[in-house]
């Protein structure tokens, strides 16, 4: 059995190595997308409920157990591990998917430790783990700029600032509000129901269209292959030089899309940032009564 799995893994590895090395630079030909592999594990079945339920039970047991008993905590951890092992059964078996899924697993572990940790600093570290692995996932989805920006904004700025605040509000022992949570059982149940719904919607038959082209974004489309271009995009394609037509998935292409098709959104985002800066300054200022 083991050797069979190893053999299959090596086979997959050999088959998907070229894909893997070019995943960050070039997107695959859209024609091959429509000829997707036969769906084996992707469709919804009742067994997908099992990891979700196990995870929720594990979370509830741990939250109930940290304050009550060690056996409950242990069984909660075992339930979460069972959920992870079951969830692995639903992942497709290719190299790229294995890398993606390991990023997903690390991110999920970070998220769970964020939920379960009592000490705020540990929770913040779990959050940092989750966000960094999320950046890995974004990187593997050819979103290089977004991955870098997420890493800088979240893992850099947010975590540093919040660790700073945690130190600022320093306490040596745990506070009551870190231990007494607001109804973790109900929240866990709500989360399980929501996750089940999301999974059912996403893995259902024809949950999302396989390939759609938005005709209102001509600049971005000019770089697409001929059969995916709209009329207006074709017009732009004829006008532009080859060097200006960039491969979709590159950062330069993203920049071009940002400053042509989405210019108003960029301006609005800049305005929002300015307003937020002013608001933060106004909020953080000490009023004169507080001085007295």
């Amino acid at each position: 059995m083991n050797s069979l799995i190893t053999y299959m893994a090596m086979n997959r590895l050999a088959a998907s190595l070229p894909d893997f090395f070019f995943v960050a630079q070039v997107l695959p030909d859209p024609k091959t997308i429509s000829a997707a592999q036969p769906t084996v594990v992707g469709t919804w079945n009742l067994w997908m409920l099992a990891p979700i339920v196990f995870g929720a039970i594990g979370y509830m047991l741990i939250q109930h157990g940290v304050v009550k008993s060690k056996p409950a905590t242990g069984s909660g951890i075992i339930a979460i591990l069972a959920a992870v092992i079951l969830a692995i059964g639903f992942t497709p078996n290719t190299l790229e998917s294995w890398m993606l899924m390991s990023f997903c697993a690390v991110a999920t572990a970070g998220g769970v430790s964020f939920l379960v940790a009592r000490e705020p600093v540990y929770a913040a570290l779990g959050f940092a783990t989750a966000v960094l692995s999320t950046c890995g996932i974004l990187f593997m989805q050819s979103a290089l700029f977004v991955a870098a920006a997420t890493m800088i904004v979240y893992a850099g700025a947010t975590i540093i600032i919040f660790l700073f605040v945690l130190m600022f509000a320093q306490h040596t022992d745990l506070r009551a509000y870190d231990i007494q949570l607001t109804n973790p059982l109900l929240a866990g149940a709500i989360g399980a129901v929501l996750l089940t719904t999301i999974t059912m919607c996403v893995t259902g038959e024809k949950a999302f269209a396989s390939n759609q082209v938005d005709a209102t974004r001509p600049y971005s489309q000019a770089s697409l292959p001929a059969e995916l271009r709209s009329e207006k995009a074709e017009e732009f394609y004829q006008k532009t030089t080859p060097s200006a037509r960039l491969v979709p998935g590159t950062t330069a292409g993203l920049g071009r899309a940002l400053y042509t098709d989405y210019l108003i959104a960029v301006e609005l985002a800049g305005t929002v940032l300015l307003v937020a800066t002013i608001g933060a300054l106004a909020l953080a200022q000490r009023t004169t009564e507080e001085h007295a």
Partner: peptide, 14 residues
Amino acid sequence: MNDILTQNLLVFGG
């Protein structure tokens, strides 16, 4: 890359 990976990522996002 294909629909299954997209599905997995959507589930993970959820």
